[in-house]
Design a protein around this nucleic acid. Structure first.
Lengths: 348, 348
DNA sequence: TTGAAAGCGCTAACAT
DNA sequence: ATGTTAGCGCTTTCAA
């Protein structure tokens, strides 16, 4: 490097190319409006000085940052990992940068993130809200005038574009699958009550039961949160029931919960499906490739990301009406013979 | 909302509280230097107007943004997912925002990200470089004067703090494990040659073989990239060998490659370890919980993130010398009896 | 086709 | 304890 100053401004480039800062700005933003020879001089100066425009200054004056944010509720969930990919692709095609945030299902962490992002003047937000309480947080965003799109989870009273899955339908199908196999006592290991997906998955589960003339048994419904340890604990709790009340099948409302449940079963030397059947909402990616024997309802995660991003960019371009658009994507039942029996045998 | 203007500036707050903008600024940045009564008036105005400072303006004048970036090479790899968690925790404790980027092992995508981030004037960077070529990209960062820390992958000739794993050692242990089980013909399914971790894992593999008087057989070494499909393809290629040349064991240098390899084996109706043994570098998280029978070398991913972030913040605080610090974390061998035999039986 | 002036929202440095 | 001034790096507007 020849330069001593690490920070190169548009003025430095202008001086080197013997033009005004305005001309440099034009070369960057509308090259056509600059004479070819001048342009070349400027471009050379930019190269030589390794000039990188200061996006803070540009954002300040233009009022736009060409940046959107994506806040997911759990970055370690393969579902969201795929959503991220979808969003990134669409954003890149539109020339936007994505700031990715992970709320870890924490309302407080989510609020902090959103505040920081508003402060950074992002142009728009894609968010899988941590809980129903996120409404207040989203109101901050509306107030700022930034558009946002809800992903995976709708929130009552929030009027915005959204891309969600048919959680009631998926849960109904999955529970129906168990019922059609002859199960009558089906347990539900669910996420937090106030997470919209959990609420709907429970609704679907109960609806399917009632349709078959079965009254949901509160003792068979355990609600905690979408985490592996909770799945483990919930399963233990279910196993503590007297044998005649114990369910013959389990519906885990999330992939992590299912994995936790299987671990608890294994610890208790019980086999899936020999001793107890198990299905879950959302696929488990790598795991289902390795041990392809768990029946699941799988969601088109990538589409969640691409459609939501599409919606957001349309709002940013202003070429869409006032009324919110709500897309509900249909999950797909993937029937696999459950694993577990063999695992236990081998573990012995 | 009573306000019509969506954009609230410090001037608006100042007017409402009947003070100067400077006083508002002081209330926000050094509350102690403002009289309690004044402060209260200002704080109330801030509340009422829902004022959120413009970080673009602040960053422009202060020359710091309190933002760092983390670029990982594959966001869908559970290893990096855990790294993200570690980084986020340390950043949050230090009052920094994290911009997460996913280069998807693409050098070009990485370069674009870094340029955008420099333009946004991030204070520092944590990066798992896509390849050895990333050096030029990192030079841009040094030139800007921003510190960065390498995660997971060191790069020749780059002088910076780094947190990596002992890839040679881990691969040696893993290969040694297979040798100790009596295997003599061991295949390697590896990532890209120019990815530092892949290069070192191969070195460890070859070192272990040589130590046991075995000359590595090029026909048993397949190098592609760290992706499931490539693992599948590589395994197919190995299975195409005449029986007497076919390896009795496989070392997959990455979790994704291992999963792909197992899928190929299953498709060929071959069982692990009955027909062929398999071990891999990096654990497979959920999958190993579900089917806990694959021997792996597991890395302390969280520590990769926390230590790297720690290093970066120390540089930002300036309380550390010029010479780079290099930490090499030791992976842990987790011996599990391999799955596969049962899978195939069940699949039949 | 190019440049000069003004200002985006904030804070450092210097008053008062 | 509070206010005034100037300027961070860029672009918009207007002028030449």
């Amino acid at each position: 490097m020849h330069e001593l100053s690490v920070i190169v401004t548009i003025q430095d480039v202008a001086a080197r190319a013997r033009v005004s800062a305005m001309t440099v700005s034009r070369v960057i933003n509308s090259p056509a409006r600059v004479a070819p020879t001048t342009r070349q001089r400027v471009e050379q100066a930019i190269q030589e000085l390794h000039y990188v425009p200061n996006a803070l200054a540009t954002g300040l004056v233009k009022g736009r940052t060409r940046t959107i944010a994506l806040i997911v509720s759990d970055i370690s969930n393969p579902f969201f990992t795929i959503v991220v990919r979808g969003v990134e692709d669409v954003a890149q095609r539109n020339g936007y940068t994505v700031i990715l945030g992970n709320s870890d299902e924490s309302f407080e962490k989510e609020r902090q993130y959103v505040t920081a992002l508003l402060s950074k003047r992002i142009d728009g937000l894609l968010i899988a809200p941590a809980s129903g309480d996120s409404r207040a947080t989203l109101d901050m965003v509306s107030r700022r005038g930034s558009p946002y799109v809800l992903i995976d989870r709708d929130i009552d009273g929030v009027i915005a574009d959204s891309v969600t899955g048919d959680n009631i339908g998926g849960a109904t199908i999955l529970t129906g699958h168990l019922l059609s196999l002859g199960h009558r006592r089906i347990g539900l290991i669910n996420g937090q009550r106030d997470v919209p997906t959990a609420r709907d998955r429970r609704r679907g589960y109960e609806a399917a039961l009632r349709e078959h003339g079965i009254t949901p048994d509160p003792a068979l419904i355990i609600e905690s949160s979408y985490r592996r340890e909770e799945g483990y604990r919930a399963m233990q709790q279910i196993l503590a029931l007297p044998l005649e009340r114990r369910p013959t099948a389990i519906f885990a409302s999330n992939n992590f919960l299912a994995v936790g449940a299987i671990e608890a079963l294994r610890a208790a030397n019980l086999a899936v499906p020999a001793d107890i059947a198990l299905v879950c909402f959302d696929d488990i990616e790598l795991a289902s490739a390795l041990d392809p024997f768990l029946t699941v309802v799988s969601q088109p995660a990538r589409s969640f990301g691409t459609i939501a991003a599409q919606f957001l960019f349309e709002r940013l371009d202003g070429d869409v009406g006032r009324q919110p658009r709500r897309v509900v994507l249909t999950p797909e039942l993937i029937v696999r013979r459950s694993c577990g029996a063999q695992l236990v045998r081998r573990a012995e």
